Amino acid sequence: MMTRLIAATDDLAAVLGERANGLAGTGAGGYDPGLTGQRHIFNQFASSLDELTDIPDAPVPTWVRNEAGTWAERLRLMSDQPMSTLVHDDIRIDNLLQRPTGEIVFLDWGAAGIGPDWLDPLLARLERVDQDWFDTSLTSSAALARIGDEAVTSWLVGIGTHLAVRTVTAVDVNLPTLQEFRRTESARFLSAAARRLR
């Protein structure tokens, strides 16, 4: 199933890139105002890294805190790169159907936006981010191979830190399990980034 998902997501990214032609230049900030802009999200990740000195109880390891400025700068540089692809931005096993013929159908487009062509291929691999398989699988995507290991690791540090900061700053009264989900996913992403830096 995972092999099929990876291939389908890589194909999806190519098709969405073609269909989003022209969207990147519309609206303030370089994206259609009706869609989420990943440029903004990358900058949110960077801001969370900037805020770490003021949030000592966020569950972020020392190695991230010691280089927070460097990680934030890398994410800001990434946010300046071209973002002209329509992205699903919520590739997860519970957002998929498999037809009897084996084809993958992508559901729940509520988070769709404009972003980099490598985002969906990366998200499709996150289920196994805590395994060596994740690292080796990156080479099978032309988009992920093009951006390189440093960008992938920086993104993992960014999202991991952002989720960690949210565990101590966000108030979600009607979502009692969300904080534990953030803690768990943050730890997975930051542990994967640490593994990739060894």
Rank of each mutant, 00 (worst) to 15 (best):
L126C: 04
A142E: 14
I159C: 07
E67G: 00
Q44R: 15
I114H: 05
L12F: 04
Q131K: 14
G29H: 08
A20R: 01
S79E: 10
V105R: 01
L175W: 05
T177G: 07
T153A: 06
T53H: 11
A194D: 12
P61Y: 11
G29W: 06
G34Y: 00
I104D: 04
R146N: 09
G113T: 08
S79I: 12
I6D: 14
W118C: 04
V168N: 05
E67P: 00
A170P: 00
W133T: 14
L138Y: 05
S84C: 14
E185K: 01
A72P: 03
T9V: 14
A142D: 13
A111W: 07
G113C: 08
A28F: 06
M83T: 14
I41R: 14
H88G: 02
S79T: 12
P82R: 11
A72C: 09
P82T: 10
S191E: 13
S140T: 15
N43E: 15
S47E: 14
D132S: 13
V105G: 03
V60G: 12
T36C: 09
L86M: 11
F45Y: 15
A151Y: 02
S186Q: 06
T36R: 13
T62A: 15
A46K: 01
L178G: 00
D10F: 12
A170V: 10
D130S: 15
A192Y: 09
P82M: 12
L190N: 04
W63V: 13
Y31C: 12
A164Y: 02
A170I: 04
